[in-house]
Design a protein around this nucleic acid. Structure first.
Lengths: 218, 218
DNA sequence: AAAAAACGTTGATATTTATCATCATCTTCC
DNA sequence: GGAAGATGATGATAAATATCAACGTTTTTT
């Protein structure tokens, strides 16, 4: 209990995992992220606008950010935490589509854009702090060039990651694909258990376990 | 021979497949596409700018638009034609990542953005007319809101398609995945041969052939 | 018109992966 | 502290898919 309390008072820039950011700190982190990644930094008016447009949300571990059948009302920028996006097939088996960590947008973009019910679930794997935006505020979002630029860049990276994974699933062995994730997204292996990674790679957890033990022997 | 000649003189709006668009018609089609899909249409100045920014290119069937090892210098909007993007593995086997038809952007966005050598090839499956843009002209590109909006939308659709495919590859049977492509992108099945579709779906051509014949029997 | 290449199908077999079951260890929660 | 759940490993078997080979048909090239 003492530990949990202490965690709340960890300084913002610390390496130690803090459970909770104050809302003010969430905005600061977001704005600083935008300014370091965009070609032109935000002006004062834009900073004010961002604080109006984005609503902070805390999603506790295991809680849903989006459930199958709902329309995805929010896209959320993850300031701190980890989430997964998955679908559930006829037999109740979960298939992980995406993993999200800090500085990623979480949400089902198709559902969000088209206002159609999502076929995916998104839940928090760790306690997660996000800044969320609704569809209705997109016009204001689009009025901030640096935000648009950042968003495009993140979308592209995200898209790349999936493209690579897709390509890899055809032309590379499972061992090579696992190694690729380990190299490119090492935080995934540290923050998600092996059976989640297996699902992300599109194989049974037993198969990944075996491939890993084979690889170690070599 | 007479038929081929005739095809060149088909009116622009015709349903009949025309081999070649004049450059003027390429721009007109592009601008009309933007205007019908963006919330605010282009003004005269923007139209002039577009004609400056984009360079028309014709890629003949089987010719490369991008070769492995090159930096992807252009992103190309396909006005007419069909292309495929693929990688080649150690054994010389081709793995199709993406198929492009009219109104898609063709190019390796990672290579284009990061100026790194591409690991993919893009070639024309049919004679293709494109409007291409270089990295250097992106600033001007970004100054046209309707173009940005269109581009974002296309990226998203593209990304959706791949996400869906990726998800499907884990939770759906090959028969279901094929049916999905047939429903969502029927033009792919008409314009690309079956072994290309098989590669796109990530299976051997023999496997797709068998699954199809099974499905017909039902 | 003939030759070559591309395409699609089918069969036999090998390889990969999924599935089901069991067990040991570790963590979480009461 | 102890029960329940989560996690990861391993074995036996079934299912899906790849691979290699052969063949007929269609399309393209010369």
């Amino acid at each position: 209990m003492l530990d949990k309390l202490k965690a709340r008072f960890v300084p913002a820039g610390s390496n130690i995992v803090s459970c909770v950011n104050s809302w003010q700190i969430m905005y600061e982190k977001f704005i600083s992220y935008i300014n370091t990644h965009a070609t032109t930094p935000l002006n004062e008016q834009e900073v004010r606008l961002i604080k109006n447009i984005f609503e902070p949300k805390r999603i506790r571990k295991k809680q849903y950010f989006l459930q199958e059948g709902e329309v995805c009302k929010y896209m959320g920028f993850i300031v701190k935490g980890a989430m997964r996006m998955y679908s559930v097939d006829d037999r109740g088996v979960e298939h992980v589509l995406s993993l999200f960590v800090e500085n990623w947008w979480a949400g089902d973009r198709e559902s969000f854009t088209m206002l159609t019910p999502s076929i995916y679930n998104i839940d928090a794997w760790e306690d997660t702090d996000m800044l969320t935006i609704t569809h209705a505020r997109l016009v204001e979002f689009n009025s901030i060039p640096a935000l648009l630029e950042l968003s495009r860049r993140l979308d592209q990276n995200h898209s790349f990651a999936n493209m690579k994974r897709l390509n890899a699933s055809n032309s590379l062995s499972l061992e090579q694909r696992y190694a690729h994730v380990a190299e490119k997204y090492p935080e995934f292996l540290q923050r998600f258990p092996q059976h989640i990674i297996a699902s992300y790679l599109g194989v049974a957890k037993e198969t990944l376990s075996r491939v890993r033990s084979q690889a170690i022997k070599k």
